[in-house]
Design a protein around this nucleic acid. Structure first.
Lengths: 298, 298
DNA sequence: GCCGATGATACCTGCAGGGTATTGAGAAGG
DNA sequence: CCTTCTCAATACCCTGCAGGTATCATCGGC
Protein backbone atom coordinates (compact mmCIF):
# COMPACT_ATOMS: atom_id res chain seq x y z
CA UNK A 1 0.00 0.00 0.00
CA UNK A 2 0.95 3.48 -0.77
CA UNK A 3 -0.11 7.03 -0.06
CA UNK A 4 -1.11 7.18 -3.69
CA UNK A 5 -3.58 4.38 -3.09
CA UNK A 6 -5.11 6.35 -0.25
CA UNK A 7 -5.30 9.53 -2.29
CA UNK A 8 -6.98 7.71 -5.15
CA UNK A 9 -9.28 5.85 -2.82
CA UNK A 10 -10.46 9.03 -1.15
CA UNK A 11 -11.07 10.66 -4.51
CA UNK A 12 -13.16 7.73 -5.76
CA UNK A 13 -15.04 7.52 -2.48
CA UNK A 14 -15.87 11.21 -2.66
CA UNK A 15 -16.82 11.27 -6.32
CA UNK A 16 -18.56 7.90 -6.23
CA UNK A 17 -17.49 7.60 -9.83
CA UNK A 18 -14.18 6.43 -11.19
CA UNK A 19 -14.24 8.63 -14.28
CA UNK A 20 -14.82 11.86 -12.38
CA UNK A 21 -12.28 10.87 -9.74
CA UNK A 22 -9.73 10.18 -12.45
CA UNK A 23 -10.36 13.61 -13.94
CA UNK A 24 -9.93 15.19 -10.53
CA UNK A 25 -6.66 13.32 -10.08
CA UNK A 26 -5.51 14.28 -13.58
CA UNK A 27 -5.08 10.69 -14.68
CA UNK A 28 -7.14 8.54 -16.98
CA UNK A 29 -9.76 6.12 -15.82
CA UNK A 30 -8.15 2.69 -16.38
CA UNK A 31 -5.10 3.14 -14.13
CA UNK A 32 -7.38 4.42 -11.40
CA UNK A 33 -9.55 1.33 -11.72
CA UNK A 34 -6.44 -0.78 -11.41
CA UNK A 35 -5.15 1.05 -8.36
CA UNK A 36 -8.45 0.61 -6.56
CA UNK A 37 -8.46 -3.07 -7.44
CA UNK A 38 -4.93 -3.40 -6.13
CA UNK A 39 -5.86 -1.72 -2.90
CA UNK A 40 -8.85 -3.99 -2.42
CA UNK A 41 -6.77 -7.02 -3.22
CA UNK A 42 -3.99 -6.07 -0.84
CA UNK A 43 -6.45 -5.42 1.97
CA UNK A 44 -8.48 -8.47 1.04
CA UNK A 45 -11.58 -6.31 1.43
CA UNK A 46 -14.23 -5.12 -0.97
CA UNK A 47 -14.29 -1.37 -0.46
CA UNK A 48 -16.84 -0.48 -3.14
CA UNK A 49 -19.94 -2.04 -4.57
CA UNK A 50 -19.97 -1.44 -8.31
CA UNK A 51 -23.32 -0.21 -9.50
CA UNK A 52 -24.33 0.87 -12.96
CA UNK A 53 -24.44 4.40 -11.61
CA UNK A 54 -20.95 4.33 -10.17
CA UNK A 55 -19.06 3.23 -7.10
CA UNK A 56 -20.63 2.99 -3.70
CA UNK A 57 -18.71 2.48 -0.48
CA UNK A 58 -19.27 -0.69 1.49
CA UNK A 59 -19.35 -0.45 5.25
CA UNK A 60 -15.71 -1.51 5.36
CA UNK A 61 -15.01 1.12 2.75
CA UNK A 62 -16.61 3.85 4.82
CA UNK A 63 -14.53 2.86 7.79
CA UNK A 64 -11.41 2.81 5.67
CA UNK A 65 -12.31 6.21 4.26
CA UNK A 66 -12.23 7.74 7.71
CA UNK A 67 -8.88 6.17 8.40
CA UNK A 68 -7.51 7.19 5.04
CA UNK A 69 -8.49 10.78 5.64
CA UNK A 70 -6.88 10.65 9.04
CA UNK A 71 -3.69 9.30 7.59
CA UNK A 72 -3.57 11.89 4.87
CA UNK A 73 -4.17 14.68 7.35
CA UNK A 74 -1.43 13.31 9.57
CA UNK A 75 0.98 13.17 6.65
CA UNK A 76 0.21 16.75 5.82
CA UNK A 77 0.68 17.78 9.41
CA UNK A 78 3.95 15.87 9.61
CA UNK A 79 5.42 17.62 6.59
CA UNK A 80 4.22 20.97 7.78
CA UNK A 81 5.68 20.48 11.23
CA UNK A 82 8.94 19.11 9.87
CA UNK A 83 9.25 22.14 7.63
CA UNK A 84 8.60 24.54 10.44
CA UNK A 85 11.13 22.67 12.55
CA UNK A 86 13.57 22.86 9.66
CA UNK A 87 13.13 26.62 9.57
CA UNK A 88 13.81 26.87 13.28
CA UNK A 89 10.22 27.84 14.00
CA UNK A 90 9.33 24.78 15.99
CA UNK A 91 11.30 22.81 18.49
CA UNK A 92 13.39 23.30 21.55
CA UNK A 93 16.46 25.28 22.44
CA UNK A 94 18.49 24.45 25.53
CA UNK A 95 20.36 27.45 26.84
CA UNK A 96 23.08 27.53 29.46
CA UNK A 97 23.12 30.61 31.67
CA UNK A 98 25.27 31.52 34.63
CA UNK A 99 24.15 31.91 38.15
CA UNK A 100 23.17 35.49 38.65
CA UNK A 101 24.50 37.81 36.04
CA UNK A 102 21.47 37.34 33.84
CA UNK A 103 20.18 40.63 34.97
CA UNK A 104 19.42 42.58 31.88
CA UNK A 105 20.48 41.38 28.48
CA UNK A 106 19.51 37.74 28.67
CA UNK A 107 15.89 38.17 29.69
CA UNK A 108 15.38 40.80 27.00
CA UNK A 109 17.03 38.57 24.45
CA UNK A 110 14.96 35.56 25.37
CA UNK A 111 11.82 37.64 25.25
CA UNK A 112 12.66 38.93 21.79
CA UNK A 113 13.35 35.36 20.62
CA UNK A 114 10.14 34.05 22.10
CA UNK A 115 8.18 36.75 20.33
CA UNK A 116 9.67 35.89 16.99
CA UNK A 117 9.59 32.10 17.46
CA UNK A 118 6.68 31.40 19.79
CA UNK A 119 6.69 27.67 19.10
CA UNK A 120 10.28 27.12 20.14
CA UNK A 121 10.45 25.94 23.70
CA UNK A 122 13.41 27.59 25.39
CA UNK A 123 14.79 25.62 28.31
CA UNK A 124 17.19 27.42 30.63
CA UNK A 125 19.93 25.56 32.48
CA UNK A 126 21.92 27.34 35.15
CA UNK A 127 25.53 26.19 34.94
CA UNK A 128 29.03 27.51 35.33
CA UNK A 129 31.26 28.37 32.44
CA UNK A 130 33.02 25.01 32.57
CA UNK A 131 29.73 23.15 32.78
CA UNK A 132 28.42 25.10 29.82
CA UNK A 133 31.38 24.09 27.71
CA UNK A 134 31.01 20.46 28.65
CA UNK A 135 27.26 20.56 28.10
CA UNK A 136 27.77 22.13 24.68
CA UNK A 137 30.14 19.34 23.69
CA UNK A 138 27.74 16.73 24.97
CA UNK A 139 24.94 18.56 23.17
CA UNK A 140 22.90 18.92 26.31
CA UNK A 141 22.67 22.62 25.48
CA UNK A 142 22.90 24.40 22.15
CA UNK A 143 24.05 27.78 23.35
CA UNK A 144 25.61 29.17 26.51
CA UNK A 145 25.96 32.65 27.94
CA UNK A 146 28.99 33.82 29.85
CA UNK A 147 31.65 36.47 30.24
CA UNK A 148 35.36 36.37 29.54
CA UNK A 149 35.09 33.44 27.20
CA UNK A 150 38.40 32.28 25.78
CA UNK A 151 38.57 30.95 22.20
CA UNK A 152 38.19 27.21 21.79
CA UNK A 153 38.76 25.02 18.75
CA UNK A 154 35.28 23.56 18.45
CA UNK A 155 33.22 26.40 19.89
CA UNK A 156 32.31 29.72 18.40
CA UNK A 157 31.94 32.83 20.52
CA UNK A 158 29.67 35.69 19.68
CA UNK A 159 29.62 38.86 21.72
CA UNK A 160 26.19 39.93 22.84
CA UNK A 161 26.82 43.15 24.67
CA UNK A 162 29.43 45.13 26.60
CA UNK A 163 28.91 46.71 29.97
CA UNK A 164 31.00 49.29 31.79
CA UNK A 165 31.78 48.63 35.42
CA UNK A 166 30.39 50.34 38.49
CA UNK A 167 31.50 50.22 42.07
CA UNK A 168 29.20 48.80 44.71
CA UNK A 169 29.92 50.67 47.94
CA UNK A 170 28.49 50.26 51.44
CA UNK A 171 26.48 53.36 52.27
CA UNK A 172 28.70 54.12 55.34
CA UNK A 173 31.96 53.49 53.49
CA UNK A 174 34.43 56.41 53.33
CA UNK A 175 34.34 56.31 49.50
CA UNK A 176 30.58 56.76 49.55
CA UNK A 177 31.03 60.24 50.92
CA UNK A 178 33.33 61.38 48.11
CA UNK A 179 31.75 63.24 45.20
CA UNK A 180 34.15 61.54 42.79
CA UNK A 181 35.90 58.18 43.15
CA UNK A 182 39.02 57.66 41.08
CA UNK A 183 39.84 54.11 40.07
CA UNK A 184 43.31 54.22 41.60
CA UNK A 185 41.82 54.86 45.01
CA UNK A 186 40.56 51.29 45.06
CA UNK A 187 44.03 50.15 46.04
CA UNK A 188 43.40 51.49 49.54
CA UNK A 189 40.21 49.51 50.13
CA UNK A 190 39.48 45.80 50.48
CA UNK A 191 37.45 44.39 47.61
CA UNK A 192 35.02 41.55 47.16
CA UNK A 193 35.75 39.62 43.98
CA UNK A 194 33.67 37.11 42.01
CA UNK A 195 33.14 34.58 40.58
CA UNK A 196 35.10 31.70 41.96
CA UNK A 197 35.52 28.74 39.65
CA UNK A 198 36.93 28.31 36.18
CA UNK A 199 39.50 30.89 35.15
CA UNK A 200 39.89 33.18 33.35
CA UNK A 201 36.88 34.96 34.72
CA UNK A 202 35.67 38.35 35.76
CA UNK A 203 38.19 38.19 38.67
CA UNK A 204 41.07 38.22 36.23
CA UNK A 205 39.51 41.16 34.45
CA UNK A 206 39.42 43.17 37.67
CA UNK A 207 42.94 42.16 38.71
CA UNK A 208 44.16 43.02 35.20
CA UNK A 209 42.56 46.47 35.38
CA UNK A 210 44.25 47.10 38.71
CA UNK A 211 47.57 45.93 37.32
CA UNK A 212 47.10 48.35 34.40
CA UNK A 213 46.75 51.10 36.97
CA UNK A 214 49.83 49.91 38.83
CA UNK A 215 48.49 48.22 41.95
CA UNK A 216 47.32 44.90 43.34
CA UNK A 217 43.79 44.87 44.83
CA UNK A 218 43.28 43.94 48.46
CA UNK A 219 41.03 40.89 48.28
CA UNK A 220 38.67 40.76 51.24
CA UNK A 221 36.65 37.82 49.96
CA UNK A 222 36.05 35.80 46.81
CA UNK A 223 32.45 34.71 46.20
CA UNK A 224 30.58 32.70 43.62
CA UNK A 225 28.44 35.30 42.02
CA UNK A 226 27.45 38.95 41.81
CA UNK A 227 24.44 38.59 44.08
CA UNK A 228 26.58 37.20 46.89
CA UNK A 229 29.21 39.84 46.20
CA UNK A 230 26.76 42.70 46.58
CA UNK A 231 25.33 41.07 49.68
CA UNK A 232 28.79 41.07 51.24
CA UNK A 233 29.20 44.70 50.27
CA UNK A 234 25.97 45.38 52.16
CA UNK A 235 27.52 43.49 55.06
CA UNK A 236 30.53 45.79 55.03
CA UNK A 237 33.11 43.40 53.55
CA UNK A 238 34.35 46.12 51.27
CA UNK A 239 33.68 47.44 47.80
CA UNK A 240 33.01 45.43 44.69
CA UNK A 241 33.28 46.09 40.96
CA UNK A 242 30.21 44.90 39.10
CA UNK A 243 28.85 45.15 35.57
CA UNK A 244 26.34 47.97 35.36
CA UNK A 245 23.43 45.61 34.83
CA UNK A 246 23.99 44.57 38.45
CA UNK A 247 22.40 47.84 39.52
CA UNK A 248 19.11 46.03 39.23
CA UNK A 249 20.25 44.32 42.46
CA UNK A 250 18.98 46.85 45.00
CA UNK A 251 20.36 45.99 48.44
CA UNK A 252 19.65 48.24 51.39
CA UNK A 253 22.93 49.82 52.41
CA UNK A 254 24.56 49.47 48.99
CA UNK A 255 25.01 52.29 46.55
CA UNK A 256 26.50 52.10 43.07
CA UNK A 257 28.96 54.76 41.99
CA UNK A 258 30.64 55.54 38.71
CA UNK A 259 34.44 55.70 38.69
CA UNK A 260 36.70 58.39 37.28
CA UNK A 261 40.14 58.01 35.71
CA UNK A 262 39.39 54.45 34.71
CA UNK A 263 41.91 52.41 32.73
CA UNK A 264 41.17 51.63 29.08
CA UNK A 265 38.83 48.71 28.45
CA UNK A 266 36.98 49.40 31.65
CA UNK A 267 34.20 47.15 30.61
CA UNK A 268 33.24 43.51 30.44
CA UNK A 269 31.64 41.59 27.64
CA UNK A 270 28.67 39.23 27.67
CA UNK A 271 29.01 36.60 24.97
CA UNK A 272 27.24 33.55 23.85
CA UNK A 273 28.96 30.36 22.85
CA UNK A 274 27.86 27.50 20.60
CA UNK A 275 29.26 24.57 18.67
CA UNK A 276 30.93 25.53 15.41
CA UNK A 277 29.50 22.46 13.70
CA UNK A 278 25.97 23.01 14.93
CA UNK A 279 23.80 23.46 11.83
CA UNK A 280 20.56 23.56 13.78
CA UNK A 281 18.15 26.06 12.23
CA UNK A 282 16.88 26.90 15.69
CA UNK A 283 20.36 27.95 16.77
CA UNK A 284 20.69 29.96 13.58
CA UNK A 285 17.40 31.67 14.35
CA UNK A 286 18.54 32.37 17.87
CA UNK A 287 21.88 33.81 16.76
CA UNK A 288 19.98 35.91 14.31
CA UNK A 289 17.97 37.30 17.18
CA UNK A 290 21.19 37.91 19.12
CA UNK A 291 22.57 39.94 16.24
CA UNK A 292 19.37 41.93 16.07
CA UNK A 293 19.57 42.60 19.79
CA UNK A 294 23.17 43.76 19.58
CA UNK A 295 22.31 46.15 16.77
CA UNK A 296 19.36 47.52 18.69
CA UNK A 297 21.46 48.22 21.76
CA UNK A 298 24.56 49.44 19.92
CA UNK B 1 6.20 11.30 -0.50
CA UNK B 2 5.38 7.71 -0.02
CA UNK B 3 4.86 5.18 2.70
CA UNK B 4 8.08 3.63 1.49
CA UNK B 5 9.90 6.84 2.29
CA UNK B 6 8.53 6.74 5.80
CA UNK B 7 9.45 3.10 6.27
CA UNK B 8 12.96 3.76 5.07
CA UNK B 9 13.28 6.90 7.12
CA UNK B 10 12.25 5.14 10.31
CA UNK B 11 14.74 2.35 9.63
CA UNK B 12 17.61 4.76 9.08
CA UNK B 13 16.61 6.81 12.12
CA UNK B 14 16.57 3.70 14.26
CA UNK B 15 19.79 2.19 12.96
CA UNK B 16 21.58 5.54 12.71
CA UNK B 17 23.46 3.96 9.85
CA UNK B 18 22.40 3.68 6.23
CA UNK B 19 24.18 0.40 5.56
CA UNK B 20 22.60 -1.42 8.48
CA UNK B 21 19.22 0.08 7.71
CA UNK B 22 19.53 -1.07 4.11
CA UNK B 23 20.32 -4.59 5.31
CA UNK B 24 17.31 -4.55 7.58
CA UNK B 25 15.13 -3.41 4.68
CA UNK B 26 16.63 -6.05 2.40
CA UNK B 27 17.81 -3.52 -0.13
CA UNK B 28 21.27 -2.25 -0.94
CA UNK B 29 22.72 0.94 0.45
CA UNK B 30 22.70 3.31 -2.55
CA UNK B 31 18.95 3.30 -3.25
CA UNK B 32 18.33 3.89 0.42
CA UNK B 33 20.64 6.89 0.38
CA UNK B 34 18.75 8.20 -2.59
CA UNK B 35 15.33 7.72 -1.01
CA UNK B 36 16.41 9.59 2.09
CA UNK B 37 17.78 12.41 -0.05
CA UNK B 38 14.51 12.54 -1.96
CA UNK B 39 12.53 12.72 1.23
CA UNK B 40 14.69 15.53 2.57
CA UNK B 41 14.43 17.38 -0.69
CA UNK B 42 10.69 17.03 -0.91
CA UNK B 43 10.22 18.25 2.65
CA UNK B 44 12.88 20.90 2.20
CA UNK B 45 14.27 19.85 5.55
CA UNK B 46 17.54 18.29 6.63
CA UNK B 47 16.46 15.28 8.65
CA UNK B 48 19.90 13.85 9.38
CA UNK B 49 23.34 15.21 10.06
CA UNK B 50 25.85 13.02 8.30
CA UNK B 51 28.76 12.10 10.54
CA UNK B 52 31.68 9.78 9.84
CA UNK B 53 30.06 7.41 12.30
CA UNK B 54 26.70 7.38 10.62
CA UNK B 55 23.46 9.29 10.45
CA UNK B 56 22.19 11.37 13.30
CA UNK B 57 18.71 12.84 13.50
CA UNK B 58 18.33 16.60 13.54
CA UNK B 59 15.70 18.08 15.76
CA UNK B 60 13.36 18.31 12.79
CA UNK B 61 14.20 14.69 12.06
CA UNK B 62 13.28 13.59 15.56
CA UNK B 63 9.97 15.33 15.28
CA UNK B 64 9.35 13.78 11.90
CA UNK B 65 10.29 10.38 13.30
CA UNK B 66 7.48 10.57 15.82
CA UNK B 67 5.04 11.55 13.14
CA UNK B 68 6.26 8.88 10.78
CA UNK B 69 5.79 6.22 13.43
CA UNK B 70 2.31 7.53 14.11
CA UNK B 71 1.43 7.40 10.47
CA UNK B 72 2.75 3.89 10.04
CA UNK B 73 0.83 2.71 13.08
CA UNK B 74 -2.31 4.35 11.76
CA UNK B 75 -1.89 2.67 8.40
CA UNK B 76 -1.52 -0.68 10.08
CA UNK B 77 -4.58 -0.05 12.21
CA UNK B 78 -6.56 1.06 9.17
CA UNK B 79 -5.80 -2.13 7.24
CA UNK B 80 -6.52 -4.26 10.24
CA UNK B 81 -9.84 -2.58 10.91
CA UNK B 82 -10.82 -2.64 7.25
CA UNK B 83 -10.09 -6.35 7.16
CA UNK B 84 -12.13 -7.03 10.23
CA UNK B 85 -14.94 -4.95 8.77
CA UNK B 86 -14.61 -6.92 5.54
CA UNK B 87 -15.03 -10.14 7.48
CA UNK B 88 -18.15 -8.84 9.15
CA UNK B 89 -16.42 -8.65 12.51
CA UNK B 90 -16.57 -4.90 12.89
CA UNK B 91 -19.27 -2.47 11.99
CA UNK B 92 -22.93 -1.91 12.46
CA UNK B 93 -26.07 -3.83 11.67
CA UNK B 94 -29.45 -2.13 11.61
CA UNK B 95 -32.28 -4.52 12.34
CA UNK B 96 -35.99 -3.94 11.96
CA UNK B 97 -38.21 -5.67 14.50
CA UNK B 98 -41.93 -5.55 15.05
CA UNK B 99 -43.72 -4.14 18.00
CA UNK B 100 -44.10 -6.82 20.55
CA UNK B 101 -43.72 -10.28 19.12
CA UNK B 102 -40.02 -10.30 19.84
CA UNK B 103 -40.59 -12.42 22.81
CA UNK B 104 -38.30 -15.35 22.48
CA UNK B 105 -36.39 -16.01 19.28
CA UNK B 106 -35.11 -12.54 18.49
CA UNK B 107 -33.44 -11.77 21.83
CA UNK B 108 -31.76 -15.17 21.80
CA UNK B 109 -30.63 -14.70 18.24
CA UNK B 110 -29.22 -11.25 18.90
CA UNK B 111 -27.44 -12.54 21.97
CA UNK B 112 -25.84 -15.35 20.00
CA UNK B 113 -24.76 -12.90 17.30
CA UNK B 114 -23.33 -10.47 19.81
CA UNK B 115 -21.30 -13.25 21.39
CA UNK B 116 -19.79 -14.25 18.08
CA UNK B 117 -19.31 -10.71 16.75
CA UNK B 118 -18.80 -8.49 19.79
CA UNK B 119 -17.55 -5.53 17.75
CA UNK B 120 -20.60 -5.29 15.55
CA UNK B 121 -22.97 -2.71 16.90
CA UNK B 122 -26.53 -3.96 16.48
CA UNK B 123 -29.10 -1.19 16.28
CA UNK B 124 -32.73 -2.20 16.67
CA UNK B 125 -35.53 -0.29 14.99
CA UNK B 126 -39.12 -1.02 15.85
CA UNK B 127 -41.22 -0.80 12.70
CA UNK B 128 -44.16 -2.43 11.02
CA UNK B 129 -43.82 -4.91 8.20
CA UNK B 130 -44.43 -2.24 5.54
CA UNK B 131 -41.94 0.09 7.18
CA UNK B 132 -39.38 -2.68 7.29
CA UNK B 133 -39.70 -3.29 3.59
CA UNK B 134 -39.39 0.39 2.79
CA UNK B 135 -36.43 0.75 5.17
CA UNK B 136 -34.71 -2.25 3.57
CA UNK B 137 -35.08 -0.70 0.13
CA UNK B 138 -33.78 2.62 1.38
CA UNK B 139 -30.96 0.76 3.16
CA UNK B 140 -31.86 2.23 6.52
CA UNK B 141 -31.89 -1.33 7.84
CA UNK B 142 -30.10 -4.43 6.61
CA UNK B 143 -32.43 -7.06 7.93
CA UNK B 144 -35.97 -7.17 9.24
CA UNK B 145 -37.97 -9.65 11.29
CA UNK B 146 -41.61 -10.39 10.77
CA UNK B 147 -44.26 -13.03 10.28
CA UNK B 148 -46.31 -13.99 7.24
CA UNK B 149 -43.89 -12.38 4.82
CA UNK B 150 -44.91 -12.61 1.19
CA UNK B 151 -42.25 -13.10 -1.53
CA UNK B 152 -40.90 -9.94 -3.15
CA UNK B 153 -38.71 -9.52 -6.21
CA UNK B 154 -35.82 -7.71 -4.55
CA UNK B 155 -36.01 -9.15 -1.05
CA UNK B 156 -35.06 -12.57 0.20
CA UNK B 157 -36.91 -14.24 3.03
CA UNK B 158 -35.38 -16.71 5.41
CA UNK B 159 -37.44 -18.55 7.96
CA UNK B 160 -36.08 -18.35 11.47
CA UNK B 161 -38.45 -20.48 13.45
CA UNK B 162 -41.99 -21.85 13.57
CA UNK B 163 -44.30 -21.67 16.50
CA UNK B 164 -47.54 -23.52 17.16
CA UNK B 165 -50.48 -21.50 18.37
CA UNK B 166 -52.03 -21.40 21.82
CA UNK B 167 -55.27 -19.96 22.99
CA UNK B 168 -55.24 -17.12 25.50
CA UNK B 169 -58.36 -17.50 27.63
CA UNK B 170 -59.76 -15.36 30.43
CA UNK B 171 -59.61 -17.36 33.67
CA UNK B 172 -63.37 -17.10 34.18
CA UNK B 173 -64.24 -17.95 30.57
CA UNK B 174 -66.39 -21.06 30.00
CA UNK B 175 -63.65 -22.61 27.87
CA UNK B 176 -61.20 -22.26 30.75
CA UNK B 177 -63.18 -24.82 32.68
CA UNK B 178 -63.04 -27.50 29.97
CA UNK B 179 -60.30 -30.13 30.24
CA UNK B 180 -59.90 -30.11 26.44
CA UNK B 181 -60.66 -27.34 23.98
CA UNK B 182 -61.23 -28.35 20.39
CA UNK B 183 -60.38 -25.82 17.68
CA UNK B 184 -63.86 -25.93 16.17
CA UNK B 185 -65.34 -24.71 19.43
CA UNK B 186 -63.80 -21.32 18.79
CA UNK B 187 -66.64 -20.52 16.38
CA UNK B 188 -68.90 -20.04 19.40
CA UNK B 189 -66.75 -17.45 21.15
CA UNK B 190 -65.73 -13.90 20.25
CA UNK B 191 -62.02 -13.54 19.45
CA UNK B 192 -59.48 -10.77 19.64
CA UNK B 193 -57.36 -10.58 16.51
CA UNK B 194 -54.05 -8.84 15.74
CA UNK B 195 -52.16 -7.14 14.25
CA UNK B 196 -53.90 -4.38 12.37
CA UNK B 197 -51.96 -2.84 9.51
CA UNK B 198 -50.42 -4.26 6.36
CA UNK B 199 -51.97 -7.48 5.10
CA UNK B 200 -51.45 -10.36 4.79
CA UNK B 201 -50.71 -10.75 8.44
CA UNK B 202 -51.32 -13.04 11.35
CA UNK B 203 -54.99 -12.09 11.16
CA UNK B 204 -55.30 -13.75 7.77
CA UNK B 205 -53.59 -16.82 9.13
CA UNK B 206 -56.18 -17.15 11.88
CA UNK B 207 -59.11 -16.45 9.54
CA UNK B 208 -57.69 -19.00 7.09
CA UNK B 209 -57.42 -21.65 9.82
CA UNK B 210 -61.03 -21.05 10.80
CA UNK B 211 -62.10 -21.28 7.17
CA UNK B 212 -60.22 -24.60 6.90
CA UNK B 213 -62.34 -25.80 9.81
CA UNK B 214 -65.51 -24.54 8.17
CA UNK B 215 -66.45 -21.43 10.13
CA UNK B 216 -65.92 -17.69 10.31
CA UNK B 217 -64.56 -16.36 13.61
CA UNK B 218 -66.52 -13.84 15.61
CA UNK B 219 -64.25 -10.82 15.77
CA UNK B 220 -64.66 -8.98 19.06
CA UNK B 221 -61.79 -6.56 18.46
CA UNK B 222 -58.76 -6.04 16.22
CA UNK B 223 -55.67 -4.66 17.95
CA UNK B 224 -52.18 -3.68 16.94
CA UNK B 225 -50.07 -6.29 18.66
CA UNK B 226 -50.00 -9.36 20.83
CA UNK B 227 -49.47 -7.50 24.07
CA UNK B 228 -52.61 -5.43 23.56
CA UNK B 229 -54.48 -8.56 22.46
CA UNK B 230 -53.62 -10.46 25.63
CA UNK B 231 -54.49 -7.39 27.69
CA UNK B 232 -57.95 -7.38 26.13
CA UNK B 233 -58.26 -11.08 26.86
CA UNK B 234 -57.54 -10.23 30.49
CA UNK B 235 -60.27 -7.62 30.24
CA UNK B 236 -62.76 -10.23 29.09
CA UNK B 237 -63.00 -9.24 25.42
CA UNK B 238 -62.79 -12.86 24.41
CA UNK B 239 -60.17 -15.41 23.51
CA UNK B 240 -57.16 -14.87 21.34
CA UNK B 241 -54.87 -17.14 19.33
CA UNK B 242 -51.23 -16.32 19.95
CA UNK B 243 -47.86 -17.81 19.03
CA UNK B 244 -46.55 -19.93 21.88
CA UNK B 245 -43.72 -17.52 22.63
CA UNK B 246 -46.43 -15.13 23.82
CA UNK B 247 -46.75 -17.23 26.97
CA UNK B 248 -43.94 -15.15 28.33
CA UNK B 249 -46.62 -12.46 28.62
CA UNK B 250 -48.05 -13.34 32.01
CA UNK B 251 -51.22 -11.36 32.62
CA UNK B 252 -53.26 -11.91 35.77
CA UNK B 253 -56.55 -13.49 34.70
CA UNK B 254 -55.17 -14.96 31.47
CA UNK B 255 -54.33 -18.61 30.99
CA UNK B 256 -52.88 -20.26 27.90
CA UNK B 257 -54.36 -23.50 26.71
CA UNK B 258 -53.41 -25.94 24.01
CA UNK B 259 -56.02 -26.83 21.42
CA UNK B 260 -57.12 -30.22 20.20
CA UNK B 261 -58.29 -31.23 16.71
CA UNK B 262 -56.39 -28.39 15.16
CA UNK B 263 -56.35 -27.94 11.38
CA UNK B 264 -53.13 -28.74 9.49
CA UNK B 265 -50.48 -25.96 9.53
CA UNK B 266 -51.59 -24.82 12.94
CA UNK B 267 -48.50 -22.79 13.32
CA UNK B 268 -46.99 -19.45 12.34
CA UNK B 269 -43.53 -18.69 11.04
CA UNK B 270 -41.01 -16.06 12.12
CA UNK B 271 -38.80 -15.02 9.22
CA UNK B 272 -36.17 -12.49 8.52
CA UNK B 273 -35.99 -10.48 5.33
CA UNK B 274 -33.09 -8.78 3.59
CA UNK B 275 -32.05 -7.36 0.25
CA UNK B 276 -31.13 -9.98 -2.33
CA UNK B 277 -28.31 -7.79 -3.63
CA UNK B 278 -26.84 -7.04 -0.20
CA UNK B 279 -23.31 -8.40 -0.21
CA UNK B 280 -22.44 -7.01 3.21
CA UNK B 281 -20.24 -9.42 5.15
CA UNK B 282 -21.98 -8.36 8.34
CA UNK B 283 -25.31 -9.44 6.95
CA UNK B 284 -23.74 -12.70 5.82
CA UNK B 285 -22.39 -13.24 9.32
CA UNK B 286 -25.80 -12.47 10.79
CA UNK B 287 -27.61 -14.87 8.45
CA UNK B 288 -25.03 -17.45 9.34
CA UNK B 289 -25.94 -16.99 12.98
CA UNK B 290 -29.63 -17.26 12.06
CA UNK B 291 -28.98 -20.59 10.37
CA UNK B 292 -27.08 -21.79 13.42
CA UNK B 293 -29.97 -20.75 15.62
CA UNK B 294 -32.52 -22.56 13.48
CA UNK B 295 -30.46 -25.73 13.56
CA UNK B 296 -30.08 -25.48 17.32
CA UNK B 297 -33.82 -25.12 17.86
CA UNK B 298 -34.89 -27.59 15.19
C1' DG C 1 50.11 7.68 6.15
C1' DC C 2 47.49 3.72 5.27
C1' DC C 3 43.21 1.15 6.22
C1' DG C 4 38.51 0.57 7.30
C1' DA C 5 33.99 2.31 7.74
C1' DT C 6 30.39 5.24 6.01
C1' DG C 7 27.78 7.86 2.86
C1' DA C 8 27.52 9.70 -1.99
C1' DT C 9 27.67 9.15 -7.01
C1' DA C 10 27.36 6.94 -11.67
C1' DC C 11 25.19 3.93 -14.47
C1' DC C 12 22.23 0.01 -15.71
C1' DT C 13 17.85 -2.91 -15.58
C1' DG C 14 13.22 -4.45 -14.73
C1' DC C 15 8.83 -3.47 -13.22
C1' DA C 16 4.95 -0.84 -12.15
C1' DG C 17 2.21 3.20 -12.96
C1' DG C 18 0.11 5.75 -16.49
C1' DG C 19 -1.61 6.23 -21.32
C1' DT C 20 -4.82 4.78 -25.52
C1' DA C 21 -8.09 1.71 -27.48
C1' DT C 22 -11.58 -1.37 -26.69
C1' DT C 23 -14.93 -4.42 -24.43
C1' DG C 24 -18.83 -5.54 -21.34
C1' DA C 25 -22.88 -4.64 -18.79
C1' DG C 26 -26.57 -2.33 -17.19
C1' DA C 27 -29.88 1.84 -17.57
C1' DA C 28 -32.40 5.11 -20.27
C1' DG C 29 -35.14 6.26 -24.19
C1' DG C 30 -37.34 6.36 -28.64
C1' DC D 1 -37.53 -4.19 -28.46
C1' DC D 2 -33.65 -2.37 -30.14
C1' DT D 3 -30.53 1.53 -29.76
C1' DT D 4 -27.77 4.43 -27.24
C1' DC D 5 -25.46 6.11 -23.35
C1' DT D 6 -22.80 5.61 -19.23
C1' DC D 7 -19.65 3.31 -16.35
C1' DA D 8 -16.29 0.11 -15.02
C1' DA D 9 -13.15 -3.42 -16.62
C1' DT D 10 -9.67 -5.31 -19.76
C1' DA D 11 -5.76 -5.48 -23.18
C1' DC D 12 -1.68 -3.72 -24.49
C1' DC D 13 2.12 -0.33 -24.83
C1' DC D 14 5.55 2.88 -22.96
C1' DT D 15 8.17 5.56 -19.81
C1' DG D 16 9.98 6.72 -15.33
C1' DC D 17 11.67 5.27 -11.17
C1' DA D 18 13.04 1.94 -7.56
C1' DG D 19 16.61 -1.09 -6.87
C1' DG D 20 21.05 -3.36 -8.23
C1' DT D 21 26.44 -3.24 -9.00
C1' DA D 22 30.61 -0.79 -9.15
C1' DT D 23 33.07 2.97 -7.63
C1' DC D 24 34.36 7.25 -5.36
C1' DA D 25 34.96 10.72 -1.39
C1' DT D 26 35.73 11.55 3.29
C1' DC D 27 36.99 11.08 7.87
C1' DG D 28 39.03 8.55 12.14
C1' DG D 29 41.95 5.35 14.13
C1' DC D 30 45.97 2.37 14.29
Amino acid sequence: MDLRHLRYFVAVAEEENIGRAAARLHISQPPLTRQIQQLEEELGVTLFTRTPRGMELTQAGELFLEEARNIRALVEQATERAQRAGQGKLGRLDVGIFGSAILDAIPKLLLAFRNRYPDVKVVLHTMTKAEQIEALRQRRISVGFNRMLAPLADLEIRQVTTETLLLAVPARHPLAAQPVIRFAELQDHPMVLFPTGARPSFIDKVIGLCADSGFQPQISQEVGDAVTGVALVAGGFGVCLVPDSATTLQFPGVIYRQLADTPPNFCVDLSCIYRKDDQSPILAAFLNTVDGYREDTA
